[in-house]
Simulated assay, not measured.
Amino acid sequence: MIDEFGIALSAVTAHVATNLDNLAIMVGLILTVGQLRTLSGYLIAQGMMLSAAYFVSAGLETGLPHQVGYLGFIPIGLGLYALVGRYLGADSTAAEQVSKSHVLAIIALFLSVSFDSFAVFTPLLADSGPSYTAPILFGAGLSVVGLAVGGAALASMAPAKVSRLERLEWLAPYVMIAIGLYVVINTGTDIT
């Protein structure tokens, strides 16, 4: 029993350590897009990432790790779309343009910065015996829920008197472009 607890605690630690970028993105998106859409996208993306890590570790062959960097073009495109709309005089703000995006765009954004978690959990699951699979996934799931609750709590600490859009509206497109560039440039180094 102590071994299962230890491996679950290791999974929590590994997931938190590889999801600090997701936490920062989550807080920003909650403030600009809204809590329900952001948390739904984050939870679905993490479920997809952990499922993929499990299936790849079980021996499925996939070319996903080599193409995952291309996911960075999604936030770059969303950021450029918001900037073009702003400079062409569109009436809607950048945050409203991003919030009009389907939850799939938010899921893709979280997936694009979750490759480090995928790279950690795939070998962890592959190298562990079958009796440790459930504790690893339980620990990671516990971390996912904890980070979602923590992100929502951090976002709620913002001063209530300042409008959400006034605080971050101008910054949203630039952050999305920077995240996308990070994913496109850095993912190749995560694979090696």
Rank of each mutant, 00 (worst) to 15 (best):
44 I>R: 02
46 Q>T: 08
49 M>D: 09
53 A>Q: 11
62 T>G: 10
62 T>F: 07
62 T>I: 14
63 G>I: 09
65 P>A: 05
67 Q>A: 15
67 Q>I: 13
68 V>W: 13
70 Y>V: 10
74 I>V: 08
76 I>C: 05
76 I>W: 07
77 G>Q: 11
79 G>S: 03
89 G>L: 04
89 G>Q: 02
90 A>Y: 11
91 D>H: 12
92 S>W: 15
94 A>Q: 10
95 A>D: 14
101 S>E: 11
101 S>C: 13
102 H>C: 15
102 H>I: 05
103 V>D: 03
104 L>F: 15
106 I>H: 11
107 I>Q: 06
108 A>T: 10
108 A>H: 06
116 D>M: 07
118 F>N: 06
122 T>L: 15
124 L>F: 04
125 L>W: 07
126 A>W: 05
126 A>P: 08
128 S>L: 12
128 S>W: 05
130 P>V: 14
134 A>E: 09
135 P>I: 02
135 P>M: 03
138 F>N: 00
140 A>E: 02
140 A>C: 00
142 L>Y: 08
145 V>E: 06
147 L>F: 04
148 A>G: 11
150 G>K: 12
153 A>D: 12
160 A>E: 14
162 V>N: 03
164 R>L: 12
164 R>V: 01
165 L>S: 03
165 L>P: 01
166 E>K: 14
166 E>H: 13
168 L>Q: 05
171 L>D: 02
172 A>Y: 00
176 M>H: 11
179 I>S: 01
179 I>T: 07
181 L>T: 02
185 I>K: 05
187 T>D: 13
188 G>A: 10
